[in-house]
Design a protein around this nucleic acid. Structure first.
Lengths: 143, 143
DNA sequence: CCGTATCCTCTGGGATACTG
DNA sequence: CAGTATCCCAGAGGATACGG
């Protein structure tokens, strides 16, 4: 991408060509989008009120190159908007559009799942380790 | 993977080392997992009752190599189980565990989102195109 | 039918350095 | 601070062929 016009997921908007084969392939654009690395985490961060570029980069420990690309993608999808307050020092804020806010439910469910999944995993671990102590793994952190 | 023990997402189970830096980085394993290409689609397919290997491969237009790897991963995560009926011709079925079934809510929310996202997008498109006809794009297909 | 084994290409994305 | 520009490579994953 860096090479010739960065571009992550097929921009939601796109259809293989009206006359092509009844291709069920690509799977819904939504899955494609949500299934793209970092997108969920970034959205999650935005939902939690993190709006600054650097803030998010630090939070997710994500390099600026990738974050910039993803945010640009979110903008194209109409999921987030960039609001640049031209002042010194530069201050930019990203926030979710209605479409982006609508993902709150999705993220919410994911968090629920992660929690119970953690529980189940913990039980498995407990089963195979002795003592009431948790092993030094299986701690699902939800950002 | 084929090369040296294929392995997609960090197996949910894993922690950078108890004594490491308070690394908030990696983001929850759940996001890592759901944010891995194909996982969501495969789970969605399983939720919809598609249980056969070939069936899923065709449905998602996914090659066997990748599908096999992902399914193996799902098994390791305790999200799906492989049930091999030893008969001729070979017949294998994959089904979700309780942990996997729990993802139904997540998938459900994603579908809802995709639908309304589609609506919003359609409206935008309508706004910039004339006539009541939809442009030949923006058709969100849900797996 | 259900995979595994190879080969091989493409690109995601980290590291690093630099601008406005 | 908020990116952009490069360099660069491990690894995702498609195509193809084969095996139980």
């Amino acid at each position: 991408m860096v090479h010739s016009g960065e571009q992550a997921a097929p921009t939601l908007h796109d259809l293989p060509e009206a006359g092509a084969e009844p291709d069920h392939s690509d799977g819904s654009a939504a899955y494609q989008f949500l299934g793209t690395r970092w997108n969920l985490q970034i959205i999650s961060a935005l939902l939690d009120g993190y709006t600054r570029f650097t803030e998010i980069a630090l939070l997710l420990n994500l390099n600026s190159r990738t974050l910039a690309e993803r945010l640009k993608h979110l903008e194209l999808e109409g999921i987030a908007v960039r609001r640049g307050h031209n002042q010194i020092p530069v201050r930019v804020e990203y926030e979710l559009t209605a479409k982006g806010q609508a993902l709150r439910e999705v993220v919410s469910e994911i968090r629920k799942w992660a929690l119970q999944a953690d529980g189940q995993t913990a039980m498995e671990v407990i089963g195979e380790t002795n003592g009431g102590r948790y092993a030094e793994h299986d701690i699902l952190r939800i950002r």
